[in-house]
Nucleic acid binder design. Structure first.
Lengths: 335, 335
DNA sequence: TGATTAAATCGAACCGGTTCGATAGAGCCC
DNA sequence: GGGCTCTATCGAACCGGTTCGATTTAATCA
């Protein structure tokens, strides 16, 4: 590999001039610039990113930290970020914490060690230690998906209250009253907001919520399945189930199918967030989806803005909340 | 941030001794070691991975390069690799080429620039330029999924011929004769092998393949959908469709559903490779799946072996081919 | 006890860039 | 022509580690 010193020698200038020519060509005379250009081409010089990062104290990498890269929600956002970053000569390092807070922390520390230029973080933690940790990081960070109280960073997400309310209202309009809700972890804002949207919409309609019909699905497959089973074996069975995310809703569908319930004939189902191949799932689930492309785009722009603008670091954090979209299916019937 | 010089000063030893103590404690006297240990704890020293990589010429990162990290097949492999790498103090950098060869190449070049210790690569290219490029990389590489002729590297994959043959035989045994096959790109070994398994099994059974029933789905959703549509509008419609991968098979299911065909009553369907949530897709698709966990485990071990063993680099490349597994569903009926 | 050898530690060079103060020369003004 | 400013270039220090030959110290043996 050719180094900058090889270039300098061949062009008969000093190393620092070559470096300057690369970072700020305007400050080098045109004939020197030309000599350097030719020398670079002749020896096939490419700057070593590691050496640059070490010297600069900043790399051209962006860390992307989520709980599950397989989730198409995160996948869409990742793609947007990658495209935008690549256009701005940055490289996205994708990491997956499997939803575990300690692992996420380890990954973030790794990324910080790599002197990443910035972080796009879907936080999984929520306690004070975690919040302090995120606050201590001296790097541009854009958080998304999960709004964590106490983290003073840019945030990009969707109106989860609205998402829960929309589907609840839909089910109410179809005549449902015994509506079950499968929740997520109580420490996740997305989960509590979606539930609040459900509960308040029910209350506004004057419908009382049977506490037995609110079960905890933890946003996971196993807990969601179990929660759904508990719903289905009740004598006062719900006429509709609202899953607070894609995983618990589809777990409920699986439980229904296994026990022999038909959807929507026996029980209606609605969910928040899409999954891959939802179009071939029978019935097509009625859902509210987030505008992942827009979210990804905002995250990317906001992050690059903070990275590239010198004064970007001191701008106060800002929240971007998008409106989710209703996607009708045929999993909810009128009763 | 504390540096190694801070530690050296506090422990009253030279920088090189601290470095030695860190990399090879046995060669440092126990009392010096203790002094250094205390000094490290006192100043909170953590070695800068960037500086280490620059000095060593090798980092502790492993590059993972696939066409679609959202695909659960790659997701499982990624998880295995990450776990194993983490246990061996390596960090996996995940990149997604979106299936584009030029982008994959850019990502690999980036990773090489990062002086990654090794690469787990699901190659998407096939021409001579690409092969030469991969050959030119002076880093341990384990290729997987796609076996590319000419690339002399470790390879880990499944017996794709068998996968195609198993499902074909199954359909034949159920009485099907007009079996359609949706292929993948002809430059992909997985695609051609799966097709060969289909074609030879048909030939062995003395059943002639109608060329109109072999259509190209490119392993993509749009092409698969289009190919399926062309199958469905034929007067001599197939009684069964075999999709060479999950994407084209599910695209076919979608096409069938949209046109009003029932599966399996009107047309049977079988596919190679699983998808997330296949258990809630109606009907449950009969499929042959790869042992992703075993594949991931082998990839991880083989790669770490080459990375950590000094003589690992010169070992001749080896192929690991696993047997895929038949998973019965109810998408194939006896006729 | 002095010579020999092994173990422990050190110093300096190096990895490949960036950065900034210093210096030399060119151009301008009075 | 002397003083001044600007521009182009350079040298040296630095980022934070690793590596290896050299040197000092301790242990072994005749």
């Amino acid at each position: 590999m050719a180094t900058i010193r090889d270039v300098a020698k061949l062009a008969d200038v000093s190393v620092s001039t070559v470096s300057l020519a690369l970072s700020n060509p305007a400050r080098v005379s045109s004939k020197t610039l030309e000599k350097i250009r030719q020398a670079i081409a002749a020896v096939g010089f490419v700057a070593d990113p590691l050496a640059q990062s070490l010297a600069r104290g900043r790399s051209r990498m962006i860390g992307f930290v989520v709980g599950n890269v397989g989730n198409p929600f995160f996948g869409d956002i990742r793609r947007e970020l990658e495209n935008y970053a690549l256009d701005h000569e940055h490289f996205v390092v994708v990491t997956d914490s499997s939803g575990k807070t300690d692992r996420e922390r380890a990954m973030v520390e790794h990324l910080i060690g790599l002197k990443t230029a910035g972080l796009a973080l879907a936080p999984s933690g929520y306690d004070q230690g975690y919040i302090d940790f995120v606050a201590s990081l001296n790097v541009p960070i854009v958080c998304f998906d999960q709004k964590v109280a106490g983290i003073e960073r840019d945030f990009v997400g969707s109106d989860n209250y609205l998402a829960g309310a929309m589907l609840t209202e839909h089910l109410l309009q179809l005549g449902h009253r015994r509506i079950a809700f499968i929740t997520g972890p109580s420490h996740m804002r997305t989960a509590t907001e979606r539930y609040r949207g459900f509960a308040e919409t029910m209350a506004n309609a004057g419908v009382e919520v049977n506490p037995n019909l609110v079960v905890d699905g933890q946003f996971t497959r196993t807990a969601g399945y179990e929660a759904a089973m508990r719903l289905l074996i009740q004598p006062e069975r719900p006429t509709a189930i609202l899953g607070a995310n894609n995983t618990v809703a589809l777990s409920a569908l699986q439980a229904m199918q296994e026990l022999g319930f038909r959807c929507p004939e026996d029980i209606s189902l609605a969910m928040i967030d899409n999954v891959q191949w939802s179009s071939v799932i029978t019935p097509r689930i009625t859902m509210v989806v987030q505008d992942t492309l827009a979210l990804g785009s905002i995250i990317a722009r906001r992050l690059m803005h903070r990275i590239t603008n010198p004064q970007g670091a001191v701008e106060p954090p800002q929240d971007f909340v998008l409106t989710p979209k209703f996607v009708p299916g045929n999993s909810c019937r009128r009763i």
